[in-house]
Amino acid sequence: MKTKKMDILSITGVLVGVGAILLGIVLDGGDISSLVNAPALIIVFGGTFGATLLQFPPAIFVRSMKMFSWILIPKEVDLSAQIDKVIYWSHLARKEGLLGLENALPNEKDPFIKKGLQLLVDGNNPDAIREILDLDMYSKENRGLQAAGLYEAMGGYAPTIGILGAVMGLIHVMQNLTNPELLGQGIATAFVATIYGVGSANLIFLPVANKLKTHVLALTQAKEMLVEGIIAIADGENPRNIKLKLGGYLHDA
């Protein structure tokens, strides 16, 4: 697995989305400073964060926080390099037998790859290898999707809590109808809370969730390719045929 360069599209997306809204306010003659409201900020983001903590167990919460870095610096697998590895293993297995793959184990740092090679070295049948590796692969995918789901949940809570903030602001307005000096603050909190909730959900939380899901599924697909390669080696397939088969996983430019 390698670490790619910074994802410029993620940064550009945030800048374009937020910038377009702010520019629209300015062009309409509004004041950007009117969007700064501490009570609304506390209500929306504090409430969203609290509801999220209630929904998810600590393990998923910690994993999702770690995965957030994938938005800026995504983790990907060099599929071409992985195919080359599989072809090398297949040639090695043909030349020295499956036990010859034991020499390749120390060079691999990925636990998934090491497990697959070890299963080959131990002489397991293809069905047993597939069952073990599929269980490992899909359990990791499930944990990754659960972590991405945390941001999706935040995208669901934020607008609703924004509405809650709006109602609270209107209650404040109703309680101070006889005091015009306090009406403005209550009205500002009401509308800004709604903007915070809807804006954060659609510009941050939901896009982050979907992008993380995309990365998780891409990593799973890379593991699927490895499983197919390892099974092909266990079946004694020709290295040339293995390369043609795994070539279907390469993305078109």
Rank of each mutant, 00 (worst) to 15 (best):
P111W: 05
V121D: 10
N124F: 10
K109N: 14
Y138W: 05
K109R: 15
K140I: 00
G100P: 15
E102H: 12
N124W: 05
E102F: 11
D122W: 13
E108H: 09
N124D: 10
V121E: 11
F112V: 00
K115M: 09
M137F: 03
N125R: 11
K109C: 00
K140V: 00
D122A: 06
K115H: 07
M137P: 04
N103C: 03
L101N: 03
M137Y: 02
G116E: 09
L98Y: 07
N103D: 07
F112K: 03
Y138T: 01
P126Q: 04
K115E: 12
D110F: 06
N125C: 09
S139C: 01
I132L: 14
K115D: 03
L101P: 09
L101Y: 07
I129A: 15
K114H: 06
L117K: 09
F112T: 00
L119E: 06
I113M: 15
L105F: 11
N125E: 14
F112H: 08
A128R: 13
D122T: 01
E108R: 08
P111C: 02
Q118T: 02
K114I: 00
E108I: 00
L135S: 09
I129M: 10
L98V: 08
I132Y: 10
R130V: 02
R130I: 02
G97L: 13
D134R: 10
D122S: 13
S139W: 03
I132F: 11
A128M: 10
L135A: 06
D136P: 06
G97A: 13
D127T: 02
R130Q: 10
E102Y: 06
